[in-house]
Simulated scan of single mutants.
Amino acid sequence: MFDVLGMDATAEVVYREMLAHPQDGVADLMRRLRLTEQAVLAALDTLSELALVRCSSEDPQNFHAVDPHLAADILLARQRAELAAQQQRVQEAQAAAVQLKSEFTQDRDELHRLKGVDCVRDYLATLYDRVEDELLTFAPGGAQTVANVRSSRPLAEKLLKRGVRMRTVYLDSARNDPATVEHADWLAALGGRIRTVPALPNRMVICDRRIAVVAVDCDDTAAGAVVLKTAGVVSSLYALFESVWQSAQPIGASALPTDTRRLSPQQTEVLRLLSLGHTDESVAARLGVSARTARRIATKLMDHLGARSRFQAGVHAVARGLIRP
């Protein structure tokens, strides 16, 4: 009952017994309460620390229990003092937190570097908590892993239920992964929108058209990212996203043209990359496919164009107007 006042159950029953039988000593308390000597002495120590018992003036060998009215005032005063001390500690903690934020804040910088994938994840977690209107994402790298899909769903669901508009652009290669397609359908059911393109320039997140997070190395996104807040820069990146979005296809639609004599967007992008001298491995990385798949696509295109090399296939494609130089 009195545990909220700092008195445990044994100390409480000993205190009550001492009030009922003021003349009792330790032996009497042991007998009446059926407690061991150690338990009684420990209870008396607790009561003494709470200033609820003191040595008797008449017999220093015995203890005197403080009047319960005075005891209540003592216990309440003790609790108020502890509460005031706790409030003081909270105020000091708040001041320390403000100081820490002011020393390491990222909001006042128009350009801030995030070093390493852990820093990027921490920043994005904070950013997602503050997004109010719209979240746009370029997600290169091909199919999403099962672990990534599973971990991202609670966040996506939370944002969409808050009314945040979410648009994400994946690579066309993600269409070949059932788990990614199923995730896209799940997002669409909640109001999210996903489209795909053959290739993406870089990994990027834009929040409310005012903050952009861009990978520092498109070939190694784990290296870190930069946070951009300059209005003109973010506006340009937003325009880039809109341009890519308009040319992208909803993931539920076919990425292949209905006219089999024409090239698919993925094949067109492969030819463009080959004309620039990219290797099969580089093409695979940009399209989010395996090197084997990239080689297979390139070989078919070479056969289709009658080219003897990958670079020559790109040159022929430019000459025939299949891709822009």
Rank of each mutant, 00 (worst) to 15 (best):
321 G>C: 02
150 R>E: 14
223 A>T: 05
63 F>Q: 00
176 N>I: 02
206 I>R: 04
23 Q>T: 15
89 R>M: 10
225 A>L: 00
28 D>N: 13
285 A>F: 01
18 M>H: 01
169 V>E: 03
231 A>D: 14
14 V>I: 10
266 Q>L: 14
42 A>G: 10
112 H>M: 08
58 E>K: 10
52 L>T: 01
151 S>Y: 03
137 T>I: 15
24 D>A: 14
82 E>V: 11
193 R>W: 00
118 D>P: 00
301 L>F: 07
117 V>Q: 02
221 T>Y: 04
21 H>W: 03
221 T>R: 11
183 H>W: 14
259 D>N: 14
98 V>F: 00
324 R>W: 11
52 L>E: 02
299 T>S: 13
56 S>I: 04
46 T>G: 07
268 T>G: 11
176 N>D: 15
106 Q>D: 13
105 T>K: 03
129 D>K: 11
224 G>Q: 05
147 A>L: 07
165 R>W: 00
203 R>H: 12
7 M>T: 09
65 A>H: 02
197 V>A: 15
85 A>N: 11
174 A>M: 08
24 D>T: 12
34 R>S: 15
286 R>W: 02
234 V>L: 09
250 P>N: 08
28 D>E: 15
220 D>V: 08
255 A>Q: 00
92 E>L: 13
221 T>I: 15
323 I>M: 02
55 C>Q: 14
146 V>K: 11
227 V>K: 02
245 W>V: 07
186 W>L: 03
202 N>F: 13
4 V>A: 11
224 G>F: 01
266 Q>Y: 07
90 V>T: 05
200 L>M: 09
175 R>A: 12
126 T>E: 14
203 R>V: 07
142 G>V: 06
102 S>H: 10
301 L>E: 06
325 P>M: 04
50 L>T: 02
218 C>H: 13
119 C>R: 09
50 L>F: 02
